[in-house]
Nucleic acid binder design. Sequence first.
RNA 1: GGGCGAUUAACUCAGCGGCUAGAGUAUCUCCUUUACACGGAGAGAGUCGGGGGUUCGAAUCCCUCAUCGCCCACCA
Length: 1015
Amino acid sequence: MTAELAKAYDPASVQDEVAKVWDDEKCFHAEPTDPGEPYSIVIPPPNVTAALHLGHALNNTLQDILIRRARMQGKNTVWLPGTDHAGIATQTVVEKRVLKEEGKRRTEFERDDFVKKIQAWKDEYEQVILGQLKAMGCSCDWDRTAFTMDEPRAKAVREAFFQLFKAGLIYRGKRLVNWDPATLTALADDEVENEEVDGFFYYLKYPVVSSTGISPVNHGRDGHATEYITVATTRHETMLGDTAVAINPKDPRAAALKGKFVRLPIVNRIIPIIEDDYVVLPVSLGGDPADTKAQMATGFLKVTPAHDPNDYDIGQRHNLDIINVMAPDASISDKHGWSDIGDAGFLLGQSREEARKLVVKWFKDNALLEDQKPYRHSVGHSYRSHVAIEPYLSDQWYCKVTDKRLAGAALDAMNPSQISRGTGFQPVAEGEQGLKTHATNTGITFYPERYAKTYQTWHENIRDWCISRQLWWGHRIPVWSSSATRIDFVNLPANATVASMESDGMQYICLRENDTDCIANLERAGFSQDPDVLDTWFSSGLWPLSTLGWPLAAEAASPADSASGLATSVAGDASSDPPPNALSTWNPTSVLCTAREIITLWVSRMVMFNQFFQGQIPFKDVFIHAMIQDGDGRKMSKSLGNGVDPLDIISSHGTDAMRFTLTSMATNTQDVRMPVVRDETTGKNTSPKFDLGRNFANKMWNAARFALMQIESNQSQVANSESQFTTLDRWIMSRFNKTVTECDEAISNYRFDQYARACYDFFWRDFCDWYVEIAKVQFKDETKKSTTAQVIATVLDGSLRLMHPMIPFVTEKLWWKLNEVCPDRGIDGWINRGTNSRVRAQVDGDGNSTRIITAQWPIPGQTDDSAEAIVSNLQELIAQIRTARNDYKVSPKQSVTVTIVAPDCGAEQINLHRDMLESLATCKIAGVETAITTPPVNSTKITAGACEIYIEGLVDEAAEQLRNTKRRDELTKAIAAKKGRLANAGYIAKAPPHLVKETQDQLAAEEAELKALSV
RNA sequence: GGGCGAUUAACUCAGCGGCUAGAGUAUCUCCUUUACACGGAGAGAGUCGGGGGUUCGAAUCCCUCAUCGCCCACCA
C-alpha cells in the first residue's frame, strides 16, 4: 500500500484530499459546551478592499499553529474568522472603480444605490479572502464566519453605542478634526500620516491699533518702534480666520501691548493682543537657540482657532471667536461661519493652494510682507487620499476615551510586570468602577514585551476619539436629531431602549434597537437620522465581543447595569448560571495575533470596549509578529510591484512549504526580509526562500515513505521490553523528547522560528541523516528489526504530530498512511508498546482519533543522556572517517579498512556498533583495540576525540601533509588561546571551577594530539 | 524632539555573558548507494557596523558614533 505514495510530494492532490476530509468531518467546529479548557482566537479581520498578501499568510499561519496545537492538546478550541468592512478604504477603492468603469462620481448616485455597489465589491472580495484562508489551511470555525457589518455585528454596534451614550461617554462636539478635503471626511489621529514638505515661513505685518481701531501704537519686532507687529506663519491663508494675536507674558514687549489690538489686514477685523505662555520666545529675547521654532519666531503668534488645533486650545482659554473661512473642500468660503469678509471677496471660492498665493501677493503689494524664509516641515496627509489634512472645524461625534472607564481601564488591563512606572501611569484603583472583578483578569501580556510600552504610552497620552465619519459605507450612527421638536411631543417606547441628550440647542435621541415604529414616530416628529457612519474601528473594537454573540439576548433585553461598566457576573461560577455560551466560554480569548501598526488603532479599542462592556480583558496575550519586507527592506505593496501572492506560492511550492518558510521567518524582530524575484516562466513574483519549505515537506514525505515500507515488512514481532531497544533506539527517542520540550517552549513564547528550527534539526539531521541510516542496518539484523520498526513508527508518529500545526497537510496524509500500515495504534497498541515511557502522546482519548488534527499532542517522555553521549562519540568517529575519505579522495563506494584505538571503555561501545559504523562510514573495521604498539602497515592515523583511527591504504603523501598542517594550525591556535586563558589569574580565581577544569582537560587533550601529530 | 528595531559568512537569518560563532541558500569537490538529486558525503567562506567602557571572560551588558527602517509627537 505504500506503493501508492508518489516518489515526490505532490502538494496539490494531498491538500485537496485532506481539506475535503477536514471539511466533511467538521474538524474545525467547536461548541461552547464541548469539553476541555477553552482556547480561542479571533482573527484580525482582513479588509475587504483586496485579496490577502504575504503578511496575512504569515499572520494566519501563526494563528493556525496556535489553534491546531491547542486543539491537539484537548482544549475546547475555536478560531473565529471574518472580514472587516474597512469604511473609508473600501469606499475609496469602489469610488475609483466606478469612476474608471462608469465615469461617474459617488455624488452622482443615491446613497442606497452606491452602497449597493460597495456591497457587491464586498461580496466578491469576502469570497476571495475566505477562499485564500482555506487554501492556507486555516482551521477556522467557518460556521461562525462574521463580517463587521452583518446583522449580529450591527446589533452589537447599536448596543455598544447606546450603552456608551447612556453612560455619557459619547458627546457631540464642534471640534477641529483632521479633515480630508478630497474624500470629505474626518479622520482619526492615527489615520493621518506625516510627510516632509518644503515650504516657507512668511512674516506678515499686522498694524497695531487702540481699541477704537484708530490710533497706532509703536511696538514691533525686537522692540523696535513701529506701528506694526509681525507674525510668522506657514499657513498664511488661514489669517482670514485670525481672532487674536498672542504674545508670551514673559516677552518684554507684552506689558506695553496689554489691552491693545491689531487690525487684521484684508478683512480689517479688529482683534485683541492676548498673552499666552504657549507662545515661543524668539532667540533674541531669551528663546532656546536650539529650538528651530525659537529661531524662526517673532514672538507674535497669529491665533486661528478654526484652523489650528493649538490655536483652538488658545481660543478656548481666552474665549476667542472661532471663524471658519473654508468650505469642506478646503476652498475659501464665507458660507461656513465667516461673515466679516472685509476686502477678502477676491479670495472667495479659491482653493487653499490658490488662496495661499493670493494672500502672499496681497501682503507684498501692500508692503506688509516683511520676509519669507524657506522651511522644511512635516504636514499631515490622509492615509487614504494622500492629500494634506486640513484642521477643520466641524460637528462630530466623540467617544470620551479619556475617561477612566476606557483609557484608564485599558491601562489597568496590563500585566503589572510589563508596566513602566514613573511615566504618569495611573491605574484605576482595584475594584473601582467594578473592573478587575473577573477571575481571568490577570492582565494582558505582550510578546515581545517591548510593545507593552507602545500600548502604555498611547493610553497615557490619549485624546478623545472622533468616531463619526462622513462616509456612506459603514454603520450609520443610531442617533436622530431635531432642532425644534420638544422631546415630550414624541411618543417614545420604554426608557430602556431610548436615551437622549441635548447639545447646542439640538435634541439627540439614541435608539438601542432598530425599532421601525419608533423611528417612524421620530421622523414624523421632525427628527432625522444622523447621516454619518461610525469609524471602522468602532465595530472592529467590538470584534472579540460581537463574534462571540455579544450582546446576549437576555442582556440586551434588560436595562443592564452594564451601561455603567459594572459587570458583576462571573462566568460559570454558580450552579444557577445558564449553560455556557460562546461569550462566557471564549471571552477573554487566549491571544491576539497581529502586526504592530494597529496596536493603537485596534488593540487599544478592543481592550477599552471589552473592559467596559464585559468587565474583563478581551485577550490574555498580545503577540506582535514581524512585518515582511522585500529584499531591500521596503514594504511590500501593489504600487512597488514587489508583493508576493500567497496563492502563487501555494501553487508553485505547496501550502505546507509556504507555511514552513513563513514560520521559520517569524523571529521576534520588527521586520524580516524576503528577497523577491520574478519567475521568468510564470511572470509572477516568488522568493527562493520558499524552497526551504518545499524541500522540507518533500524530505518528510520521503522519509515517511521509507519508514512505512519498512514498518510494513518488519512489524511481525512486537517488543514488549525496554531492554530490547538498542542504544541507538534510545538515542533517537531521547532526541525526540528533547525536541518536544523545545517546541513546547518555543510556541508558548510565540517564538515560531525556534519551533520550525527545532523540528527541522530534529527531523532532518537526527532522524533522517542518522536514525534512518542506522535503521537500515538494524533492519538487517533479525533480532533488531522488529523493535526498529516499532521505534521508527513511534518516532515518525510523534514527529508528524509535533509538526502538524505548522505543516498540516503533509502530516495528516502521512498519518493516515501510518494508520493503514499499523492499525493497532494507541497507547496500548503496537507503536507505543514498550516505548510508552519514552515517546508519548497525551494519554486521554488517544488512539480514538483517525485524524491527526484531533490526535493528541506529544508530551515529552524519558530522555537518555548516556545514549546521547555514546551516539555523539560514534558520530564523531564516523565524521572523521568520512572527512578523511574525502580528503584522500577515496570513492564513496570504495570501502576502507580501519583499526580503531579506543582507550577506556570506548572500545566496548564501538564493538557493539560495528555494523552501524561500517555502514555509515563505508569501512571495514579490522580491529578495535584499547592500545596499539605497531600501527597497521601502509596506514594513516587520524584522531576522533579520544580515539585514534588507522585507515589502511591511504598513502597520499600530499593529502596527508595538507591535512596534518591544517590540523596542527588549528591545534596551535586553540592551545595558545587556552594557555592564555589559564595564565590569567583572574580566570582561575573567579571563573566557575568546572569551566576551569574543562579548559585544562581540553588543553591537555589538544597538546597530546599535537604531540602525536608531530612524531 | 521622544521611543523602538536592525547592522554576524556572498544572500536571508539564528545565537544575546563562558563550547573552535551556527543554520538554510549560493559556491567548490565527490557520489544517479533500492526514502528523497526538492537527495547524500565533504570543503571553503565571518578582526559578529566603528570607537570606548564594565568583566577573569563580550557578538552577547553599558556609553558613543554611523547607516538603514518603523512608531509616536510637533505641523509659528
